[in-house]
């Protein structure tokens, strides 16, 4: 399927998903659905670096939080402008703020992408566990900076008032956020799928398989890894940008939460890391289970569920659901072939 056809097909699926959510007639569907879609984006973004290139990033929460705090910084811009800028300029800024969610997503994506590029430049000479530790350190450093940055609320956190309805469309604001995240999911999946089938995808696969051989084959490994960290970071930042509007009150502990780092890794691992379908499957499965567990048991249990499933998959299906399907398909094929041979022999 060519990329434009894929985009159209994805948009149709997204429209169906939105239609079904509306049919449910319950706002909670949009609340829960937003979180699941957010994880679709995070898992897909993580997989671009972790799955395609084989570089495990433990700092997903940092990129997500960067997107969220970019929104907070922009929303609070009028206060800063009123304090330091001439009145005319301050009123212009006040009129333009808060910018619409797509603009906030773009801003979050640019900031997180730039930080991804910088992080990549500093850490990509590291490999394996050393790279993973460096990304974890990035999350800790960024969280410390945010905690001590008073303008975005510091350790106290910051309130972002969510409007009741979206002015332009007149729909409930959470429903609007759900639609935005749905469109971002389509974007992230399209980007991941396009990469997978391109020259870039081949390059990423060679980095995952053998970096030395990749260099010997003419693949500029360092440049490609920087591209991967930038795209991955940017998508994570975009996923984080609407979060302050969703949650209403953003504090470092929630933005840099363990759940983002763990889920970003667990979802592609459970779904399968070699294709864009894996993170989607993993996020839909784990995200839905977590939402059900949160409502029926407790939110703490939902993270336990992720841990248990991850352990189970590592033992039973190390290549995730996609690997499991492949194995099943091969077995069925082999069984059919041996059945056919037996019939031929009997005849």
């Amino acid at each position: 399927m060519r990329t434009p056809v894929f985009i159209v097909a994805s948009l149709i699926v997204a429209a169906v998903v939105y239609g079904l959510a509306r049919l449910a007639g319950n706002d909670y569907v949009f609340f829960a659905g937003y979180v699941i879609l957010q994880f679709v984006v995070l898992a897909t973004a993580w997989n671009i670096l972790g799955g395609y290139c084989g570089y495990v990033n433990f700092g997903s929460a940092a990129f997500f939080a960067l997107g969220a705090y970019t929104t907070v910084a922009l929303v609070k811009l009028p206060n800063l402008a009123a304090k330091y800028l001439p009145e005319g300029l301050a009123s212009v800024i006040a009129a333009a703020v808060p910018p619409p969610i797509p603009v906030l997503m773009l801003a979050g994506g640019v900031i997180a992408g730039l930080v991804g590029l910088g992080t990549g430049y500093l850490t990509l000479r590291l490999r394996g566990v050393f790279f993973a530790i460096a990304t974890l350190a990035l999350a800790v450093v960024l969280q410390t900076l945010i905690v001590n940055w008073d303008y975005v609320g510091g350790s106290r956190g910051a309130y972002v008032i969510r409007p009741q309805v979206h002015a332009l469309t007149g729909i409930n604001y959470v429903e609007y956020l759900f639609v935005m995240m749905l469109l971002l999911s389509v974007t992230a999946l399209t980007v991941a799928r396009a990469i997978e089938r391109s020259q870039l995808g081949y390059g990423f696969a060679t980095i995952r398989d053998d970096e030395l051989a990749a260099e010997a084959s003419g693949v500029p490994t360092l440049r490609l890894k920087l591209v991967a960290t930038t795209i991955s970071g940017a998508l994570m930042g975009m996923a984080g940008a609407p979060f302050p509007y969703y949650i209403g009150y953003l504090e470092p502990a929630s933005a840099f939460g363990l759940a983002y780092a763990v889920n970003s890794i667990a979802m592609p691992m459970i779904g399968g890391t070699t294709s864009w379908v894996g993170p989607l499957l993993g996020a839909l499965l784990l995200g839905t289970l977590q939402q059900i567990a949160t409502v029926t048991i407790s939110s703490a249990v939902s993270l336990l569920l992720v841990g248990l499933l991850l352990v189970a998959f590592v033992v039973i299906a190390p290549n995730g659901l996609l690997g499991l399907f492949d194995k099943l398909r091969q077995r069925i094929g082999a069984a059919r072939a041996s059945g056919g041979n037996a019939r031929t022999g009997a005849a």
């Binding site: 020259q199 081949y202 060679t206 398989d209 053998d210 051989a213 990749a214 010997a216 003419g218």
Partner: peptide
């Protein structure tokens, strides 16, 4: 290489496609 270092996740033909694309 002294010890073969193929790209294990790619097919034999795809292994050759990489240098064609990148070099």
């Amino acid at each position: 290489f002294q010890l073969p270092r193929p790209f294990t996740s790619l097919s034999v033909a795809e292994n050759l496609r990489v240098p064609l694309l990148y070099t």
